[in-house]
Design a protein around this nucleic acid. Sequence first.
DNA 1: GTGAATTATGCAAACGATTGCGGGACTTTA
DNA 2: TAAAGTCCCGCAATCGTTTGCATAATTCAC
Lengths: 342, 342
Amino acid sequence: MGKRNITLKDLSERLGFSVSTISRALKDHHDISQETKYKVQQLAKKLNYIPNYSAQSLKNSQTKTIGVIIPNLLLDFSSKIINGMIHQSRKEGYRLVISESGHSPDLEKDILENMIRSGVDGILLSLTNNTKNIDHVLLAKEKCPIVLYDKVSDKIPCTRIIVDNETGAYNATKHLIDQGRKKIVFIKGTDHSFNAKKRFEGYLRALKDRQIKVDKNLIPQCGTVCIQEGTKLVNQMISKRIEFDAIFAVTDDVAIGAIKALKKHNIIIPKQVAVVGFSNSKSTTIIEPNLTSVDQPGYTIGIKAIEYLLKELKLAHQTEHLLRTTPKTIELKTNLIKRESS
Amino acid sequence: MGKRNITLKDLSERLGFSVSTISRALKDHHDISQETKYKVQQLAKKLNYIPNYSAQSLKNSQTKTIGVIIPNLLLDFSSKIINGMIHQSRKEGYRLVISESGHSPDLEKDILENMIRSGVDGILLSLTNNTKNIDHVLLAKEKCPIVLYDKVSDKIPCTRIIVDNETGAYNATKHLIDQGRKKIVFIKGTDHSFNAKKRFEGYLRALKDRQIKVDKNLIPQCGTVCIQEGTKLVNQMISKRIEFDAIFAVTDDVAIGAIKALKKHNIIIPKQVAVVGFSNSKSTTIIEPNLTSVDQPGYTIGIKAIEYLLKELKLAHQTEHLLRTTPKTIELKTNLIKRESS
DNA sequence: GTGAATTATGCAAACGATTGCGGGACTTTA
DNA sequence: TAAAGTCCCGCAATCGTTTGCATAATTCAC
């Protein structure tokens, strides 16, 4: 602004070449002579020519932008994922348009539609905890490639980038069992969360492996997944005089809430009760005792999500239409970080 | 895309109207008869017509997207800011392209240029802690409106959205003084950080107001601003047998590091030493004792940043060129949250 | 020295939407 | 009945870039 941006036409007028020659010269087309290329490229540099993105998008019908939908940005884990996406997309020459659904399915739907209207080449989607109806996703999928990450659903036939929640939870539980813990509480997440379900399955498998029988009293369930809820549930168990020697919580926040409750009742961690969380968020090293937790490779999720989406974009671009590749599921390994709480 | 997107031309062919009539009918132009409008709008809805963003951008020479550059996403405060931006921009019909500079001036410069190439209408910029040379920003400012937020510089003549760091620090320090604390440590941030400087000034003013003289021994300085650094500095002071009865840290992380050091030395908080941080991050309620901290309205910063940038965009659009409005500085109030640590 | 191949460039349509201008059909006014 | 006004609508240019095709100039082979 100030003054208008330089265009191909400007260059063409200054140099006496046609616009098409300028265009080709700038992209080193073999039809153009070295001399001409040189002149054009020099002038372009001198005048700081910047190709008009919109015009290119219009012509090439690709916007080089990727939409990202995330339920909650205010989590360490989310930031890590976004970070990976930012870095990888930058490397690949794509822009990222990021929006937050705040765990509202309606907003999710709206954002999805909006992104498609505003012309993104593809979308990275992590579902709301409350997304039950998935029609809007299926519909969106008809218009542009979608890759699911972290919070996924097996009802949506898209490539999925997730962590191996089941094995992560299995290892965490086994870690507790190996210490001789027998009465291991599992604080469950909400019911229709894919991840929460997998973590529960991991817990169950570990118990089964070691022939510990499942005690429903030891498996309270969160309404919302947060610190307060962890505290509340553990308080309840204590006041019901339910006995336990370990707690594995579906989430770090819940685990931290649990720790707070235990400390309030002067229960010694990890001597009397060991605690393990899930996510390895920053808080794990701030709470005392430091919380053992299952680390999820958020940054890598971000990277992979971009990678796989771009693969699909390239395929779609070659074949000139959305193809129904059999969706893959990429499961990333978790890593149990042992700390003072266990 | 399976099948091509519907265009105005498609509608025009189906209905027998010209493309221009279709265009006008869709935007409720008064030149078009009710009947025609109805027909067009019906068919558009039925076929799910989506105007081509790139074409509109090209024609209107505005992309309806805003670039956001942030030094570090992995902070509660950053997430809050981004959140505010996301919500406000959405409300105003703008998209957000977000990138992270990782506190690298080179990357900052590169991202800035890239955003301008890729055609954003305006940019929201929070500077790197290491940005000394600001030429790239001034240069970018010639091409598109920039609003600075949070980490700003007074050398750049742009509108600034910041919190009132000085008053925040002043109040925090006064709070400590009011409790009878006399030997108040201030753990300083890096030297050329605008915010850190202001916080230090607030600290100094409070001391001056209460006629406490400044003791350089009580003002250690961070290399990098993090937990470890806080611990290290406090450990040093203790081993040097420097006496103090309160610590005000430039950042929550530093304050948390300080608390860890104090606890390790069995110093009772807040009885022997009170601690106050800055930012009111999530960790403040996880560390024990809970940390008193200066709350910064991150979400509001995000909102305001978008608001003021859009104001400038509208002005620029009216006057058809970048105008040098005298840049305003919007200072948002902070709020001291008192907790157990003081 | 003629035809073919190569090299370098320009023409013009296309991408999809917007908009100033012009004009036909119809109604109103004097 | 002629002039003026109103209402609807289409033509065509435009935004900046890309690209298939045509064309002109030059070179090569025989």
